[in-house]
């Protein structure tokens, strides 16, 4: 199935959890910030959040800035 990940159409495993996707991408679930269809997903809900086709997912993290 396809979702919009950080603005790009991306193929992911059907019924994949947010946690599953984050780890599959090699990201650290402790430092990733997730916004799904404009709603913030707390990291405590990464495992129970199941992605659906067409979801708009933003994965962010803290970077250097002034």
């Amino acid at each position: 199935m396809e979702i919009y990940l950080n603005g790009k159409t991306t193929a992911v495993t059907p019924e994949c959890s947010l946690f599953g996707l984050i780890t599959e991408l090699g990201l650290n679930p402790d430092t990733v910030i997730a916004e799904l269809n404009r709603d913030i997903v707390p990291s405590s809900q990464f495992e129970t959040t199941i992605l659906k086709p067409g979801d708009a997912l933003e994965l962010l993290h803290l970077v250097g800035g002034g």
Partner: peptide
Amino acid sequence: TVALRRVDI
């Protein structure tokens, strides 16, 4: 200070 950006997938 820090900034927030998309992860480079």
